[in-house]
Structure formats: C-alpha cells, structure tokens
Write a protein that binds this DNA or RNA. Structure first.
Lengths: 111, 111
DNA sequence: GCATCATACAACCGTATGGTTGTACCGATG
DNA sequence: CATCGGTACAACCATACGGTTGTATGATGC
C-alpha cells in the first residue's frame, strides 16, 4: 500500500503533459534520455529532470544499455494510482447504492 | 476527450493528501466547506482554496443548501483520470503481447 | 434591520517547480 | 589515451503553489 507521500509524487508526476508523454513513449521502452529529449521543445536537461521526477514517483525505471540509459515505464507505479481511483469509484458506487435503498425504502413505506 | 490542460488540472488536484481526503469525504456529499475545514489542521481559507482547486479540476461541485455550500465529488472527473491510466495499461499490455509474440516467433524459427 | 453563520476573495510570504546554461562524469570507439 | 556521445548535476531565474490574515458579500433567524 502506497503512503500519502507516494501518491503525492505519482499524481504530481502525472500532472504535466510532457511527463505523461514520456510515460507513454517509455512503454515501448526503447529510447534513452537524449532520444526522448528530441521529441520536445526544451533542453536536454529539462527532459532529464522530468525523467527524474517520474523515476522518483516510481513510474519509470532506467536501465543502462551501452552508453545510453533506456527509460521504461513501470506498470506497478501506474497500478498504485489506478487502485486509488478505483477505491473512490467503489465508495461512490456504495453511496449511490445506499441512496437507492433509501429511495426504495421510502417508496415501500409510502405505498 | 479531456485536453492536456484538463488532465494537468485533474492530476495536480489529486497530488495533495488534503485534497484527496476532501474528495473522499465529498463522496458522501453532505458537508459544507466549513464542516470539511474542521477535519484539517489549517485555516478555513486554506481548505476553501483546496476545494476551489478540486472544483476547477472538475472533481467536485458545490451546491447551495440553506446558508451552506455542500461539496460533492463529481464522478465524471474521476473517470477522466481513470481512462487515461487505463489507456496506458492497454498500451503496456499491447507491448507485452508483442514481446511475447516476438519470443514465440523466435522459438518457432529456432526450433 | 441587525447580528451572525457560511462563504468568497485579495494581499502577502516562503518554498517548490519548470525552465535555462554550464560543467563534470562515464563508457565506447578510433 | 584522446575523443565524443550520453548522462548527471549544480546554480540560477521566474512563476506557481500552499499557507496565512484580513476584509467583504450573502443568506438566516430574531
């Protein structure tokens, strides 16, 4: 189970379009940092920082291959975020069910 | 489909423990801003700002009831985030499948 | 109409964030 | 071993963010 601080990092990491695109590209898991940087209108260092943010959030990993470091998205990190949203969803459904019951009860009582 | 800026707002809104807790509490949809504020060790104004961030992200709505404004989580906003994560998940699965095929092909060729 | 509860918003402050440039390190290759 | 490609990191800058206090607006109850 992820701590509050971990959720903070995961969602903060996903709250940037460039980083989301890096996550998407890193699913293929074939590009190094410099190759990723070519896709974006910013310096290499900026992209490197974005990758570092994603890495700290546990959303990607880096593996040295030759002189490059290939960036790969870590599906485990994504799952943490997914599970939190799913829990909200469950709670929401529970609430809706309870309201439905309430309405049903009322109907039964009033009919 | 949500735009990049909308995703930015949704994930940024979720990247704070207090705001996530407000979302959770607002699922019940019974507390006003002042009542929510009682749960947290910060000023009323701070909580109000958090609610405003969630509102701008489309994660909660406010409805005037008497002199209060009841905060309710908007499940549609959550769905936007969920769908993005699900898409990453799909892409990831696709990649794994492709790799599996590749390995299978190789085996078939080498046997 | 007045006091009051609930909300809204502006101004301010410290720190975090996203970007830049510059420098240093590491590994492959001639 | 000298060079070069790829990465890492520090220093710096502007702006955004999370918090505060103070003031204003709005709906309720007497």
């Amino acid at each position: 189970m992820a701590s509050a601080a971990e959720f903070d990092r995961v969602f903060a990491a996903l709250a940037d379009a460039t980083r989301r695109d890096i996550v998407r590209r890193a699913i293929a898991g074939e590009e190094g940092v410099a190759e990723l940087a070519d896709h974006y209108p910013m310096s290499f260092a900026a992209v490197q920082k974005h990758v570092a943010v994603l890495e700290r959030a546990g959303l990607v990993t880096k593996q040295r291959i030759g002189r490059r470091k290939v960036v790969r998205t870590n599906v485990v990190g994504l799952h943490a975020a997914q599970r939190l949203l799913d829990r909200y969803e469950e709670l929401w459904r529970g609430r809706v069910d309870r309201m439905t019951n309430l309405i049903t009860d009322t109907r039964e009582r009033t009919t």
